[in-house]
Design a protein around this nucleic acid. Structure first.
Lengths: 226, 226
DNA sequence: CACTGTCTTGTTGGATCCAATATTAGCGCA
DNA sequence: TGCGCTAATATTGGATCCAACAAGACAGTG
């Protein structure tokens, strides 16, 4: 399901573990990643850690300087905006492709996924991220272009995502917007209106990107103070 | 200019060297990449080779199976088509962004770049690939979204490119089409017509992808015979 | 008191060693 | 003769060792 059963188990698992700890905020943005420490924590030798870091570096999540080691990349707001412009374009394509391919069941699944994001709904902590992801993942599946899904996934992995979840959780207003935008997308898909579906999705992603960029702006303003 | 002065010199150089040899066809599609052999050829130890292979694997150019080593990925035609659909969308966005940003000088540069691709022109072997690349690179620069350029670059590195050059060189007809498509894009850019520029670029990339996919189809038909 | 040069220390990078595993050749048996 | 099992071999994966390098501490000097 991932992709293909390629590569070693260990280094991929190691990479996934490190990525998860960065995404979840366990390892904060800007933190140094010491190979020996990671190796000890994860119970493996330095070798797989090194290769895992190399993978993450290629993905753009961390930065490596020659003899000083790896740090979690601190994204600049303009970088976030640029990235989300790209993602918006691709997700727009996803919607366009989804229109002629979606079934009644597919629509139901989407409605159900979004229902979990309804502002009033009670939900355990962190589940909104999962639900949000599943909404997009569902459409990616319907669109039926694996490469497209993969590129979007890679783009998403370029930034720590927990902040995205924080944005949604912190601000009830954003939650409402998010839910409504999903609704509009579903409506357009149901109406077989490819053009609208694309536009709504683009706006949705741009909006999410803007929130994320603002979050990083506030963050850097706070952090670089002291 | 690359990106940032990140990472080690050696492993990046190694990765670049291996990638270059794959792209140029020196190492053919489907070939096995033995670490020891690469290490000896490149005059380094196995360690940087391993990390370089890891990078290439993340990029999708090679495939690694646990205890059997790495092979140059053999792209399926449908994969090529999917990928080029994504790339077409992104290059379309590039053109759309380029329209409000392009200057008279920028247009001149593009015309000059395409002039090198004029069907009648005499040119040294392999220069058409370079000229073709520079045409796209120029527009990427004008569009002014680094992430966008980077994603497209990564997508391009997913397949051996030499075949793309072969497609163009083998078939005079395709060369003419290629040149004419570039011309139409330039015209639309000069006319400040974002919509047309996008559409023309999309069509251009899709067409190139179709040629490449066909090439792979013919190739697999030939190879899997014996 | 400030500045500079050196030394110490910690961390990464590269090489090599050993273990794990997949492939293949060879052998025996039906 | 063909099939299956076993053993040899080749290749990758993981661990460890040593060298290279960068950052910081400290002392000495202007």
């Amino acid at each position: 399901m991932d992709d293909a059963p390629r590569s070693d188990a260990l280094v991929d698992a190691t990479a996934a573990a490190i990525r998860a700890r960065i995404m979840s905020g366990d390892i904060p943005i800007g933190a140094q990643l010491r190979q020996a420490e990671l190796a000890k924590t994860l119970g493996v030798s330095r070798t797989p850690v090194r290769e895992a870091l190399r993978q993450l570096q290629t993905g753009g999540l961390i930065e490596v300087v020659p003899h000083r080691g790896a740090v979690v990349r601190v994204p600049a707001p303009w970088d976030v905006r640029e990235t989300y412009e790209v993602r918006a374009e691709l997700e727009g394509l996803v919607c366009e492709r989804a229109v002629p391919r979606i079934t009644r069941d597919g629509l139901d699944d989407l409605r159900k996924a979004n229902e979990a994001l309804r502002p009033g709904a009670i939900r355990p902590d962190g589940s909104s991220t999962v639900a949000n992801d599943s909404f997009h993942t569902l459409i990616h599946g319907i669109a039926g272009n694996e490469r497209l899904a993969r590129v979007i996934k890679e783009i998403n992995e370029a930034f720590p995502r927990n902040v995205s979840a924080l944005v949604l959780q912190d601000n009830p207003r954003h939650r409402e917007d998010n839910f409504a935008e999903h609704e509009r997308i579903i409506t357009a898909l149901a109406a077989d209106d490819a053009e609208t579906a694309r536009r709504e999705m683009q706006a949705h992603v741009i909006s999410a990107g803007e929130q994320l960029a603002r979050w990083y702006e506030r963050r850097s303003a706070t952090v670089f103070r002291g």
